[in-house]
Design a binder for these strands. Structure first.
Length: 464
RNA sequence: GGUCCCAUCGUCUAGUGGUCUAGGACACCGGCCUCUCACGCCGGAAACGCGAGUUCGAAUCUCGCUGGGACCA
């Protein structure tokens, strides 16, 4: 049975990179009918915050990445780690080190000065020191020579020299375990079969393998997925894209779009660009994940997002728009009016936030008229056109395209202007803008009375 | 600095020795459609980092170089 885990540390928000790691874990697990565990690695008490834990969990839920066990919190498992550290001590696979920090620091500086590696010189190894009164750390006994190799599902064989590794600390002097140790204890105890994580952990893997062996547990499969880099080609940080995934929700992105985009970042299936979640589960395989880092490109995300806005069922898109309308002070109901409005907007908006702004005039009549447009169209002649249009408009019964077109034709003839000019004046009057859905559909949607009021208001605001 | 990883259009990628005059997508440019803005459709420009080697033949295999990244300190 395949068992995977997503194990973020709550020292930051769930960003694009973390979300993708979670997604790959999820897709792989569902594809294999396995179980996925969520584990919060909150042993760094200083930097871990509940706020981040909440953000991570909410982000995953929003994306629809669900897990089968957990969340487990490492903070609650401290005794476990201590137990295993002491076990290694007893088996002589680890030892107590009493070297004072100052001394270590000095040695490190000296080594660096001489151009040597600043690794621990193993002073306390094999000495069996035991001073009950003095502070100590527990160090792991790394083999002095030889190599470790592991077969990474994505990258193939990776080999390290033991000589490059020093005797890492597994339990600090304050009795807290270190990262590389807790990860292995948990992955071992939780029966994780596949460790799928960012490739910033490749360098940790050889140490961890050693610990698995010392603990006597089976070594899992590893798959290190390449990083997602910012536009400057460095690790995603707060400067560029490392904002919470929930920020994308705020900006009006759909979870379907994020999932689709993130999946295709570093993974591909022939020439296909659009995948439903179900399709991803069917087609996703770790071996098809690329090895090179990829750069996050908002433009393409926007395109994917606009695709889903255009193709998801109208009712779904409409309902998802409601919160964004609320942000603008619009209380919209999921009714026919909304659906019709959204239907005219969905080919024009790339995000829901943008769509809400575009939809403002459908719900409110207090919009401002765009300044430049006012100058150009709300002239003396513009006013006359509006008056003439309104005159014709009052007389018609049906708001169908033909009737409206007739009015425009007459107005155009009367004032010797092109259709586009007459339309733009009216468009500006009834929406406040020069770019809107087709004017015939807009009028039909907002209705006769509202159209009338809007035009009257515009006429009133033209000072000629 | 050491270790490890990576390398096809600006970006995401297809490609696993001949079918590559290197395909698709985003973005970009031009055109069509058109009441504006979009959508859509058609077309265009745009890449195998460099150098050796293996081979009849290399984007594809090997080595070196260069470049980028991550981790450790």
């Amino acid at each position: 049975m395949v068992r995977t885990r997503f194990a973020p540390s709550p020292t930051g928000y769930l960003h694009i990179g973390g979300a993708r790691t979670a997604l790959f874990n999820y897709l792989f697990t569902r594809h294999e009918n396995g179980r996925m565990i969520l584990r919060i690695e909150d042993t760094d008490l200083e930097r871990s915050k509940d706020e981040y834990t909440k953000d991570i969990i909410e982000g995953l839920k929003w994306l629809g990445i669900d897990w089968d066990e957990g969340p487990y919190f490492q903070k609650e498992r401290m005794e476990e780690y201590r137990k295993f550290a002491n076990m290694l001590l007893e088996k002589d696979l680890a030892y107590k080190c009493y070297c004072p920090t100052e001394v270590l620091e000095e040695k490190r500086k000296k080594a660096l000065k001489e151009g040597k590696k600043p690794s621990y010189d193993r002073t306390c190894r094999d000495k069996n020191f035991n001073y009950p009164e003095r502070p100590f750390v527990i160090r792991f006994k790394t083999p002095l020579s030889g190599t470790v190799s592991f077969n990474d599902i994505i990258r193939g064989t990776i080999t390290f020299d033991y000589e490059e590794l020093d005797d890492l600390i597994i339990l600090r002097s304050d009795n807290t375990p270190t990262y590389n140790f807790t990860v292995v204890v948990d992955d071992a105890l939780m029966n994780i079969t596949h460790v799928i994580r960012g490739d910033d952990h490749i360098n940790n893997t050889p140490r961890q393998i050693l610990i698995y062996q010392a603990l006597g547990y089976r070594i899992p499969e590893f798959a290190h997925v390449p990083m997602i880099l910012g536009k400057d080609r460095t690790k995603l940080s707060k400067r560029h894209g490392a904002v919470s995934i929930l920020e994308y929700r705020r900006e009006g992105f759909l979870p379907e779009a994020l999932i689709n985009y993130i999946a295709r970042l570093g993974w591909s299936y022939k020439d296909q660009e659009i995948f439903s979640k179900q399709e991803l589960i069917e087609k996703f395989e770790l071996k098809d994940v690329g090895k090179s880092p990829s750069i996050f490109d908002v433009e393409k995300l926007l395109w994917v997002n606009s695709y889903y806005i255009k193709t998801l069922p109208l009712e779904v898109v409409s309902e998802r728009l409601i919160p964004y309308l609320l942000e603008l002070g619009i209380y919209a109901e999921p009714n026919n009016y909304l659906y019709k409005a959204v239907d005219t907007l969905r080919t024009r908006a790339k995000t829901l936030k943008e769509m809400a702004q575009m939809a403002y005039f459908y719900y409110k009549e207090d919009y401002d008229f765009e300044n430049k447009a006012k100058e150009k169209f709300f002239t003396k002649k513009g006013k006359e056109i509006l008056i003439a249009f309104l005159d014709g408009f009052q007389k018609i019964e049906n708001l169908d395209e033909n009737s409206l077109r007739d009015i425009f034709d007459r107005v155009c003839k009367e004032f010797d202007v092109k259709l586009v000019d007459a339309v733009q004046v009216v468009r500006l009057a009834i929406s406040g803008r020069l770019a809107t859905p087709g004017i015939f559909e807009v009028i039909e949607i907002i209705g006769k009375e509202s159209t009338k009021r809007r035009i009257e208001r515009a006429i009133g605001e033209i000072p000629y």
